[in-house]
Design a protein around this nucleic acid. Sequence first.
DNA 1: GTCTATATACAGATAGAC
DNA 2: GTCTATCTGTATATAGAC
Lengths: 193, 193
Amino acid sequence: MSTEEKIIQAAEKVFLRDGYDGARMKVIAEEAGLNKALLHYYFRSKENLFEKIAKAKMQEFLPTLGAVLFTDISLIEKLEHFIDRYLDLLSQNPYMPLFLINTVHKDPDFIRNLPKEFLQGFLGYFKLEINKGNIRNIDPRQFILSLIAMCIFPFVAKPIAKHMFDMEEGQYQQFLEDRRGELKTYVRTLLSN
Amino acid sequence: MSTEEKIIQAAEKVFLRDGYDGARMKVIAEEAGLNKALLHYYFRSKENLFEKIAKAKMQEFLPTLGAVLFTDISLIEKLEHFIDRYLDLLSQNPYMPLFLINTVHKDPDFIRNLPKEFLQGFLGYFKLEINKGNIRNIDPRQFILSLIAMCIFPFVAKPIAKHMFDMEEGQYQQFLEDRRGELKTYVRTLLSN
DNA sequence: GTCTATATACAGATAGAC
DNA sequence: GTCTATCTGTATATAGAC
């Protein structure tokens, strides 16, 4: 692994966990097993390193989801696949949502370049299915936002939910596993005619 | 307004918006129209001031919700009231959820003292209603987490959602207003036998 | 390219006049 | 109780030896 890759990997870990304000170049350097000065040699500044990491992570995170929405199955099946893929992705990147939310909160320009055409396309398709009478008449935007909320929230609010529900780590993992079926049931119930 | 109150009010605003790491004592002082040194005179340290603010805000935020759950109406009506009250509360405190999530993320001990008995009580009541056959058989914890997620997420992810849906501020406010009815419909659809 | 040593800036915190 | 001036620590960033 090259020095640059070591830095990027360490920076991803630290920035995702601690955010921009909470992250320290010293900590990133230690995590990479390198010297602080090298971070500046390769990336000039903390801000620059952060931007590189944040933009790459966002590009990596969002479009992965678009794919499943354009396969040749029914809308409800698409959404069920979406739930599985999204929860997989979140399990592998539990810090991503909070990181993304905080980053955009601090600097709204960060989303400027994020692709949104695939979502617009999907919303149009959703409306078509409603007009065809294949699913219940419902606001597609409200529904999609709700579905994403239900997927993301248990990861973002994990420590709070664990406390409120009096769960240990293992129990919460099981809870997240059970959630897949639960969310699919919600989707079918809400959209079926 | 006393000096101490001025500081608290300014600190609330800045900490809620910028988080602990992002907040600056200088900014809080300016916001309060006072000198930096006074913050230390009244609260000794940044950490101490933050704890005071954070604990007060949490205590203020959570129990407000418990009340509506113990009125003498049906479960579905309770949940409909909950949605209205919760969305009201969030409209008045849009930064609260992200602040709370980040604070607990940084220091999990912050929730140690948060009351959870009212939730446990409500979950028990929920199960009773299922056993009585008044509502559909569903996991109460999964359902409550989903409902809270659907309420909170549009506030937490507001900049992202606005961008993705191509909305201006006014449109998004309308979207949030429309959401009340939408969520109530979801609840009725998911819980009705 | 990689390190040690250092410069620079600014944060939180304190001292002391009023 | 409130201010100005200052201390101290630590963060990012740079200089320069190797």
